[in-house]
Amino acid sequence: GLEHMADEEKLPPGWEKRMERSSGRVYYFNHITNASQWERPSG
């Protein structure tokens, strides 16, 4: 619901949600550090 939507907005600075086109899996990418990970970043 709306709570989940708001929660997605609160990623740490630099992080954004991305989708891997080949598999459709969602991952997280940090455009500041060029880091990427499957787990939702905390902090």
Rank of each mutant, 00 (worst) to 15 (best):
23 S>Q: 04
32 I>F: 11
21 R>D: 15
20 E>R: 03
12 P>A: 04
16 E>R: 03
36 S>T: 14
34 N>M: 12
43 G>M: 12
16 E>V: 05
13 P>V: 08
21 R>F: 15
43 G>H: 13
30 N>M: 02
23 S>H: 04
36 S>Y: 09
32 I>L: 08
37 Q>W: 02
29 F>A: 02
15 W>A: 00
16 E>Q: 05
25 R>W: 04
4 H>V: 13
23 S>E: 05
7 D>P: 11
18 R>P: 00
22 S>H: 15
35 A>D: 07
30 N>E: 02
24 G>R: 05
1 G>V: 14
1 G>H: 13
22 S>L: 15
42 S>R: 09
32 I>A: 09
15 W>T: 00
42 S>P: 07
18 R>L: 11
32 I>D: 09
34 N>Q: 14
7 D>G: 11
18 R>G: 03
23 S>T: 14
42 S>T: 14
25 R>P: 01
4 H>A: 13
20 E>F: 08
3 E>M: 07
20 E>G: 04
35 A>M: 14
23 S>D: 08
40 R>N: 06
43 G>L: 14
27 Y>C: 06
5 M>I: 13
20 E>A: 06
37 Q>E: 03
27 Y>N: 00
41 P>E: 00
1 G>N: 11
41 P>H: 00
29 F>M: 03
23 S>W: 03
13 P>T: 09
38 W>G: 03
40 R>A: 07
11 L>I: 04
7 D>M: 12
15 W>R: 00
21 R>Q: 15
35 A>T: 15
43 G>V: 13
15 W>K: 00
16 E>K: 03
39 E>S: 07
5 M>W: 12
42 S>D: 11
27 Y>G: 01
19 M>R: 14
40 R>Q: 04
5 M>A: 14
18 R>Q: 06
25 R>L: 08
21 R>V: 15
1 G>W: 11
30 N>I: 01
10 K>L: 11
3 E>A: 11
42 S>C: 06
12 P>W: 02
36 S>R: 15
10 K>A: 14
32 I>H: 07
17 K>P: 04
29 F>P: 00
20 E>L: 09
5 M>L: 12
43 G>C: 09
8 E>C: 12
2 L>E: 12
17 K>I: 09
27 Y>H: 01
39 E>D: 10
38 W>S: 06
10 K>N: 13
22 S>I: 14
18 R>S: 03
36 S>P: 04
3 E>D: 10
8 E>D: 13
9 E>C: 07
11 L>D: 07
29 F>D: 01
35 A>L: 13
28 Y>T: 00
38 W>V: 06
19 M>F: 15
39 E>M: 07
11 L>K: 05
36 S>V: 14
24 G>V: 02
7 D>S: 10
18 R>A: 04
8 E>H: 09
12 P>V: 02
21 R>N: 15
42 S>M: 10
27 Y>Q: 02
22 S>M: 06
17 K>H: 04
3 E>K: 07
